[in-house]
Computed example of a mutant assay.
Amino acid sequence: MLKAYKYRLYPNREQQEFFAKCFGCARFIYNKMLSDRIDHYKETGKSLKNTPAQYKADFPWLKEVDSLALANAQVNLNKAYNNFFRDKTVGFPKFKSRKFNYFSYTTNNQKGTVHIENGYIKLPKLKSPVRVKQHRQFTGTIKSCTISKTPAGRYFVSVLVETEIKQLQPISSKVGIDVGLKEFAVLSDGSRFANPKHLRKSEKRLAKLQKDLSRKRKGSNNRNKARLKVAKLHEKISNQRSEFLHKLSTKIIRENQAIVIEDLKVKNMLKNHKLSKAISEVSWSMFRTMLEYKAEWYGRDIIIAPSNYASSQLCSSCGNKSSQTKDLSCRVYICPECGLEIDRDYNASLNLLKLAL
């Protein structure tokens, strides 16, 4: 099984210049190949089979960087085309902008060209290894690695490793999860997890930094310093959100054999402009993705409730359906048939649990 491990890099000035060249060349070859394919299709009506090697004669500076970075840019372009032809809603491949402050390139391990030893990682085409903070060890064969630079100016390497993941012992417990905005998740076993609202807690500070950034002259060093402050705060919020979701998803996977979650259409829910900001902040889609791949790793079962399953409108005791909870301000479900009074979110989680039972 393939698993990625992400570590912080501390490159020196020479290594940073090499990374900048790789980022730029990978972006250039992607855009150039995409542009030539579009032009060739307009002229002939046929697709063009081009490769990075065809451009090295006209652009000799492409030889200065890792050739595998260019090859992987071609792989990404082909993947973008395949995704478009598979599903038109994905959209046609887009050009990469150099104004986008997140940069990355991918290289492959060929007979030990990528390896970590004594706090340093060896990368192809680089004379000296790069200092890395390897905060956790791994066992297995390195297949590839992706070097990235965040808008905050930090460097990371994501090492893709082919390894064996030991599955957890099977257990009998099952749980239904109802996610929400007031409380992030309510479980059928009675557990409740508050919505941390990391963005809301940092909004005043973020607004102050963005206001300072808007007042700086474009192209000045002070503007770049202000941009870095905004980027670092955004990165902090993102890290806080990821940490919360990782800890919660791992806890649920370890403690339950079967997990039932709703099939939420988040893209449609974001059309509600009053709640779109809160829905984006809470990251339900990321939480579901984490549960799904961790369940696959550790031998757990994920059950997705049908989109038409009205978990919040059904009585968990008698099964009667009532539309009272369509009003989001209604926090207590009162069954008109059996008289059950129960918290609406807990009631929904119990109904989801029935799908596992």
Rank of each mutant, 00 (worst) to 15 (best):
K247G: 01
N222G: 10
K201R: 10
Y293R: 02
A258D: 08
L245P: 12
I252W: 08
N222Q: 14
A226F: 02
L270G: 04
R215C: 00
V230K: 05
I259V: 09
R192S: 04
L291I: 07
N239R: 10
K216G: 07
R205L: 09
Q210M: 08
N239Q: 07
Y293C: 05
R227S: 09
R288M: 00
K247Q: 05
A231I: 14
K204E: 14
K229D: 10
R254D: 07
K197Y: 03
D212V: 15
R192C: 01
V266N: 03
S280K: 05
K208C: 09
L209V: 07
F244D: 12
N256Y: 15
D263I: 10
N256G: 12
W297H: 03
A231V: 15
K208T: 10
Q210P: 06
S276L: 07
Q240I: 08
I261A: 05
T250R: 02
N221C: 06
I252K: 09
A226W: 03
S280L: 13
K247L: 04
I253M: 07
R200Q: 12
N222W: 10
M290Q: 14
A305V: 08
N224G: 12
E243Y: 10
R300S: 10
R254V: 06
S242D: 14
M269R: 01
V186S: 02
T289R: 09
K277Y: 00
H234S: 08
I253W: 06
R223Y: 15
F184C: 01
E203Q: 11
S276Q: 06
K274R: 07
I237A: 06
V230N: 08
E292I: 10
Y298W: 03
I302K: 02
R288S: 00
S285C: 15
G219C: 01
V230C: 15
D212L: 15
T289S: 08
A278D: 09
L213N: 06
H246A: 11
F184Y: 04
V260H: 02
E262I: 01
S220Q: 11
V282A: 09
I237K: 00
E243R: 02
K277W: 00
A185I: 06
F287C: 12
I252M: 13
M290N: 13
G299E: 15
N268D: 13
Y298L: 01
S242E: 15
K251P: 05
M286V: 15
K265R: 13
A207R: 04
A295P: 10
Q240D: 08
R254G: 09
I252L: 13
K201P: 12
E235R: 05
F287L: 14
E243D: 12
A194Q: 11
H273M: 15
K225L: 07
A231H: 14
K232Q: 12
I304R: 10
R217A: 14
V266R: 04
I252S: 07
K208Y: 11
K232S: 12
V260F: 03
V260K: 05
K265D: 14
K271D: 13
L213D: 04
G299M: 15
T250C: 03
R217S: 14
L213S: 02
N221I: 07
N195Y: 01
N222T: 09
M269A: 00
N272V: 13
R217Y: 15
K229W: 11
S280G: 11
M269E: 00
L206T: 03
L245R: 11
R200G: 13
